[in-house]
């Protein structure tokens, strides 16, 4: 990525993120450019070494001639909306690399939701030549977990010593990961975390880690409720599907020393192949567009309501609810009725 493109990309990202200037044109051009960029989401609890892993992956790919963009998302203060974004400090291998571009982003202050914003930025990055995009996000809070749905492939990172297998399950991360990485794989306890995770995954997914065909062993799955099984096969495919079903593998990696990072990238390309063959890949892309569309619609409808009514009107409704004149649901009904949905006028 030469300096000029780097500069253009930086400024385009700002305009798209802030919805300022010619952001619509930028997005349109970037979408039109199309891309085969593979978007990888990296999520997990604080302290799991996500940034170091992202750094190692980015450097690895850059070394193989790919152009890599990193979007590092950090939580923001719920009070002020401000944020200190420090993930890139740990990306020492990538920061001077001409094939890598790193951008930080705060998790708050995106009308239309974090996902929509992240997707837009990925589009811009791909439109400027990125062939691999890594999104790093803290796996706490629904907002951040959902970033998994933005990516083509979601890596869930844990680390020995934080009681992570339990944490991961609690955070719902066991339903989103395509590949599980136990980072700091050289620490004692890494093997047992990996074993625990593998066991838990084996109870849910058919066959062995990786893609598995119709003959995959499904005896462990009888205890899974039908509805959950349906959701899982929508995301991970069924053994009968072309390409088979995906059973997320678990890898112990030391991002710091780069140990097994090569193995991880091999798994990523295996997953990429599966995703292209499986109908689950199409479903995921569909789901992604739907999420984005719904998020944008919600926001735009709300914005329009607010613009029409001015902020003062909303304050009036709040006062009326507080005074006990009516409950919030009735207030919502009346706002939509009185003013009518924007398209009806």
């Amino acid at each position: 990525m030469d300096l000029l493109v780097r500069r253009q990309l930086a400024s385009a990202l700002t305009r798209v993120e802030n919805r300022s200037g010619n952001w619509r044109d930028i997005l349109r051009d970037c979408s039109r450019a199309g891309s085969n960029a593979l978007v990888i989401g990296v999520t997990g609890p604080p302290g799991a070494g996500k940034s170091t892993l992202v750094d190692a992956l980015a450097a690895h790919w850059a070394g193989m001639g790919e152009t890599v963009a990193v979007l590092a998302i950090d939580p923001a203060s719920p009070f002020s909306g401000g944020a200190v974004l420090g993930d890139r400090v740990r990306m020492t291998r990538s920061e001077g690399n001409d094939r890598i571009f790193i951008r930080s982003m705060s998790a708050r202050g995106h009308s239309g939701g974090l996902n929509a914003a992240a997707l837009d930025l990925c589009t811009v990055m791909a439109g400027h030549g990125a062939s691999r995009i890594l999104i790093e996000t803290v796996g706490v809070g629904q907002n951040e977990v959902e970033v998994a749905f933005v990516a083509d492939c979601t890596l869930v990172v844990s680390v020995p010593g934080l009681g992570d297998s339990v944490q991961a399950a609690k955070a719902g991360l066991l339903e989103v990961g395509d590949i599980y990485v136990v980072n700091k794989g050289d620490l004692p306890g890494a093997a047992s975390v990996a074993r625990d995770l593998s066991t838990m995954l084996a109870l849910v997914f058919p066959g062995l880690p990786g893609a598995s065909g119709p003959q995959a062993d499904r005896s462990m799955m009888v205890s899974i409720p039908g509805a959950t099984r349906k959701l899982l096969s929508a995301r991970y495919g069924a053994p009968e599907d072309p390409g088979g079903a995906w059973h997320p593998p678990v890898l112990a990696v030391s991002a710091l020393s780069g140990q097994s990072v090569g193995e991880l990238t091999e798994w990523l390309s295996t997953f990429g192949t599966w995703l292209r063959q499986s109908p689950a890949g199409k479903r995921r892309r569909r789901e992604r567009v739907k999420l984005q569309l719904v998020a944008l619609l919600k926001q735009r409808l709300f914005d329009r309501l607010q613009q029409d009514d001015h902020a003062g009107a909303l304050t009036d409704w709040i006062d009326r609810v507080l005074s006990g004149a009516l409950d919030v649901h009735s207030a919502t009904d009346q706002i939509l009725q009185d003013k009518g949905p924007p398209h009806a006028r």
Binding site: T52, V84, G86, D87, V89, R90, T92, L256, S257
Partner: peptide
């Protein structure tokens, strides 16, 4: 041994 690993927390 490699260089130091900066740690950042706010």
């Amino acid at each position: 041994y490699g260089t130091f690993e900066p740690s950042v927390a706010f």
